[in-house]
Design a protein around this nucleic acid. Structure first.
Lengths: 352, 352
DNA sequence: CTGAAAGCGCTTACAG
DNA sequence: CTGAAAGCGCTTACAG
C-alpha cells in the first residue's frame, strides 16, 4: 500500500534523506556521482514523493477549488476546462464543486473551503453570495469571484462588462429593425448578472428612443433551456407577440428557439433571437444562434494568474482587483435575416 | 496567514491537544464540561482543522481524481456533476483533469496520479489506454474505468452494454422502415467504444437480414458536432444517400442534424437520426433527438461505491469487477415520423 | 475520560 | 556539496 519513502531511498543509496530530497526537487548543488547513485535507488525502489507531506511542510497544497452553480451547464463546463488547463500549466490542480443553484450550499462551501491549506485558493462563480456572506468568511485561502456581484472591494473579480454587452446585443436587434423586443431571464432579486443585463437592455432602448414594454420582461426560475421555452411560449400566446427576444444566456435562447419553431414560426423572420455566452450548442443549432461571446480564455487565464499572485504574495492587504475581460457580438443566423441557410458563418465585431 | 492550530486551542482551553482532537473528531467519550470548554475555545479562536495534516496522518486524502477526455463535452460534464455529487455524499472531493483527447497525456496522467496519497483513487474514462499501459502503472491508488476498453481484468469497470444498445438503436431505425442506414463515428483503430457500437449496428442488420453497405460507415476524427456535420455532408453529396443514420454519440448526431436541415432536407422524413448519450441538448433541438440513454446516475453511483470499497478494503487482490449499468432507448422526433412537432414527448423503453 | 509522546513523509535552516 | 535534526499539524496507541 504505502510506497517507499525518502528514508528508504536514502538507506538504499547510502546517503541522508536531505540529499535524496535535493535530488528529487532538482536542487542544483548535488555532485553528479551522488545524484546518479540516488537516482538509481529511486528507480530501483520506484519511489515517488508523497505530495501530502510536501504540501503540509510547505504550507501550500497546489490545489485550487473551483465552485460553480452547475458543472453541466455548458458555459461553466467550458470555463472549468479552461481553468483546469491554465492551472495545470502553472503546476496547480483544480478541485471542482457545484452548488446546484442552492444558495445555502454556496454559502456553506465558501465558508468550509476556507480551511487553511486544504486549498490554496478558491475561484467562485457566485449565484447569490452577498457581501455579508463574504466578510463573514474566516481568514484563509484567497477567493476570486467570476461574473457579477453586488458588492465591491471584498475580493478579486474577473468579469466582462455585462451592461455594455447587453446593450450591444439589444442594439443589434434594434439595428435590424425590431422594435418589440422581449427579454428573458429577468430576476426578481439577487442575481446581479441578470440585473446588469437588464440595465444594458434598457440603455439600448433609451438611446434608440424606443420605450421598453414592461410586460415583455420575462422572469426565469433558472437559466435552463426549459425556462427559456416556457417564457417564450407565454410570449407567443399573446396577441401582440414580440418580434425579437434577448435571452440572458444561450440555454434560455435555445429553449426559446425551440418554442418558436415548435409553434410553426420562423427565426429570425418572425422572431429574432440573441443569446449570451457563446456556448458550442449555439453554433450548431438550426438556425445558429447570435450571441454575446465573452472571451472565456482570457477570463480563465486572468483568474488563475490573479489568484496565484494572491497566493504567492499572500498580500491579503492589497486592494481587490477588478479585472475586465473582453467580449464580442457573434452574429449568426438567428438574427441575420438575409443570410443563406447553408452557411453558419459568423460575423464578429471586436470589443475591448 | 496560518490559522490557529490544535495546540493553540489546547492552550486556550487548558487541555491537551488530544482532548481537542477528540472534540473536533466527535470522539464520544469526552466529558460534557470539557467538550463545552474546548468548543468555546475553538469558536473564540476560529479554529478549523488542517486537512492536509489529517490526511498525511491517516494515509488518506479523501480526494478522488476524475480524468475525462474533455470536460466540456456534455456527456462528461453531466457525468462529472453526478460523480461530484455522489462523492460529496460520502465525504469525498473530486479533482478533475482532462486529456484533451491526447493519448500521451492520458498515459501520463494515469502514471502520475498514481502517487500514493495524493488521491485515494482514480476514475478514468479512457480514450485509448491499453492493458500494457495499465499494468505498467506503479502500485498506488486504485483505478476504475468508465466506458469500454479492450482488455480484461486489470481494473474495476463500469459501463453499459454498448453492443446491445447500438443494436437496439439500429433495430429501431429498421423498425420504422429504413433500410439504407449509415453509421457515423466509426474508428479506424483503438477506441473500443466505437468498435462495440459498430458491432451492435452490424448485429441488428444481420438479424433483420439487411446487408450493411460499407460505404455508409463513416469515420469521425473526433466525436464533436463538426465531425458529425462533415460526415453527413459527405453522405448527402452521394446520389444514393441514406434514409437514416446512427451516430455514435449525440454531438455527432446534432452536427448531422444541422447538416441535413442546412441542405433543405427534413428529419425524420428524409433522414432519420439516432444518437447516443442522451445529453440535454438533444431534448431541445428541433427536431428533438432519439437517442440511447445510459443511466448516468447509476454509472456515477456504482463507480463511486466501487472505488470507495476498493479504497477502504485496500484489497487490491480481489478480482476486478465488471459492472453493467442499464440504458434505454429514448424515442423522440428525429425518428418519430408521425408525431406532432408541437410536443417533444419521449417514448421510453426500459432495458436491464 | 484525558495526558504525554511518537510519527505520518516531507523540507529546510543550521552546521560543517 | 552533504548530514543530523527540527517541525509542518494532525491522529492514535499507550498509560493512567
Amino acid at each position: 500500500m504505502a510506497g517507499p519513502t525518502l528514508r528508504d531511498v536514502a538507506a538504499e543509496a547510502g546517503v541522508s534523506i536531505r540529499t535524496v530530497s535535493n535530488v528529487v526537487s532538482d536542487y542544483p548543488y548535488v555532485a553528479d556521482e551522488t545524484r546518479a547513485r540516488v537516482q538509481a535507488a529511486i528507480d530501483r525502489l520506484g519511489y515517488r514523493p508523497n505530495l501530502l507531506a510536501r504540501s503540509l511542510k510547505q504550507g501550500r497544497s497546489h490545489v485550487i477549488a473551483l465552485v460553480v452553480p452547475e458543472l453541466d451547464v455548458p458555459y461553466f463546463a467550458e470555463l472549468a476546462r479552461l481553468i483546469i488547463a491554465e492551472g495545470r500549466e502553472r503546476g496547480y490542480l483544480v478541485m471542482i464543486d457545484h452548488t446546484d443553484g442552492d444558495k445555502n450550499l454556496e454559502r456553506e462551501l465558501i465558508l468550509q473551503n476556507a480551511r487553511p491549506m486544504n486549498f490554496d485558493g478558491v475561484i467562485l462563480s457566485p449565484l447569490a453570495l452577498s457581501g455579508a456572506d463574504l466578510s463573514e468568511r474566516p481568514p484563509g485561502a484567497p477567493i476570486l469571484l467570476l461574473g457579477e456581484k453586488s458588492f465591491d472591494s471584498l475580493a478579486d473579480h474577473v468579469a466582462i462588462d455585462n451592461v455594455a454587452a447587453a446593450d450591444e446585443a439589444t442594439t443589434h436587434l434594434i439595428d435590424i429593425g425590431r422594435s418589440r423586443i422581449a427579454a428573458i431571464g429577468v430576476q426578481p432579486s439577487g442575481y446581479d448578472t441578470a440585473k446588469l443585463r437588464l440595465k444594458g437592455f434598457r440603455r439600448a432602448h433609451r438611446r434608440a428612443g424606443i420605450p421598453v414594454d414592461r410586460s415583455l420582461l420575462m422572469t426565469a426560475a433558472r437559466f435552463h433551456r426549459t425556462d427559456g421555452a416556457e417564457a417564450m411560449r407565454r410570449l407567443l400566446a399573446r396577441p401582440d407577440r414580440p418580434d425579437a427576444v434577448f435571452c440572458f444566456n444561450d440555454l434560455l435562447a435555445l429553449g426559446a428557439l425551440r418554442a418558436v419553431l415548435a409553434e410553426g414560426l420562423r427565426v429570425p423572420e418572425d422572431v429574432a433571437i440573441v443569446g449570451f455566452d457563446d456556448i458550442e450548442d449555439g453554433r450548431f443549432s438550426t438556425p445558429t444562434l447570435t450571441t454575446i461571446a465573452p472571451d472565456k480564455q482570457t477570463i480563465a487565464r486572468r483568474a488563475i494568474e490573479q489568484i496565484l499572485t494572491r497566493i504567492s504574495k499572500s498580500d491579503d492587504d492589497a486592494a481587490p482587483l477588478e479585472i475586465r475581460a473582453p467580449f464580442r457580438l457573434a452574429i449568426r443566423e438567428s438574427t441575420a435575416g438575409g443570410g443563406s441557410r447553408r452557411q453558419a458563418g459568423t460575423n464578429r465585431r471586436s470589443h475591448p
